[in-house]
Simulated scan of single mutants.
Amino acid sequence: MSRVSQAEARANRKRVVESASRLFREKGVRDVSVADVMQSIGMTQGGFYKQFASKTALVDEATAEAFSDMLRRLEAMDDIHSGHDAAWSSLIDSYLSPETRDDPGSGCPAAGFAGDFARDPEWRDTYAAGIRDMAGWIAPEDTGLAALSTLVGALLLARATAGSPLSREILRAARKAAARLTE
């Protein structure tokens, strides 16, 4: 049995965190086991405990990484678009779309983790820090929090009503409301 190099161990850990983040947002933290995460990347469950103390540690790290990745994407939008207002407008359109609604695994961690963390306070500090960072990118203070709440709430309602005409109506109405929040 060959030993894994430190570089390979770091790469494996990164794969575990990324896969866990996607699966947790897609299926919920409670419905995803360590075995599910490891199987998704073709590794054994035994390898997990060489990298993480527990599933709790993985959830915390996967949450932090998901929010860090989201913030990097948001900051990149500022670079792509001509100013923050254009980036915000682009985010509204992409966030409140049927494609985002139908792909929770690669979507926003604020929406993806909301249900789990509302029921289980164990990871709320990491989640709250991510929410503050995202809201801060949108706009200062209350405006950013209100705008993010509009996006996340609308996305959750649209997911819950997917397949009905109401789902698209929610997305449309929320796009209009979100745009007005930061004017």
Results as ranks from 00 to 15, higher is better:
A7C: 08
A7V: 14
E8S: 14
A9P: 09
N12F: 10
V17N: 02
R22L: 11
L23K: 05
R25N: 07
V29C: 03
D31W: 09
V32F: 01
V34E: 02
A35G: 12
A35V: 14
D36H: 06
S40E: 04
I41S: 03
G42W: 01
T44H: 15
G47E: 05
K50S: 10
Q51G: 02
F52Q: 00
T56Q: 13
D60Y: 05
D60N: 12
E61T: 13
E61Y: 05
M70A: 14
M70Q: 12
L71T: 11
L74F: 07
A76S: 15
A76W: 13
G83Q: 03
G83M: 03
H84E: 03
W88M: 12
I92H: 01
D93G: 05
S94M: 11
S97A: 06
P98N: 07
R101T: 01
D103A: 15
P109E: 07
G115N: 14
G115V: 12
G115M: 14
R119M: 13
R119S: 14
E122I: 10
W123D: 12
G130P: 00
R132K: 12
M134T: 10
A135G: 01
G136W: 00
G136A: 02
E141L: 04
T143R: 08
L145F: 11
L145S: 08
A146P: 01
S149H: 06
G153F: 00
G153P: 01
A154G: 10
L156Y: 02
G163I: 05
I170Q: 00
R172C: 10
A174D: 02
R175P: 00
K176Q: 14
K176T: 15
A178I: 01
A178V: 03
R180V: 12
L181R: 14
E183R: 12
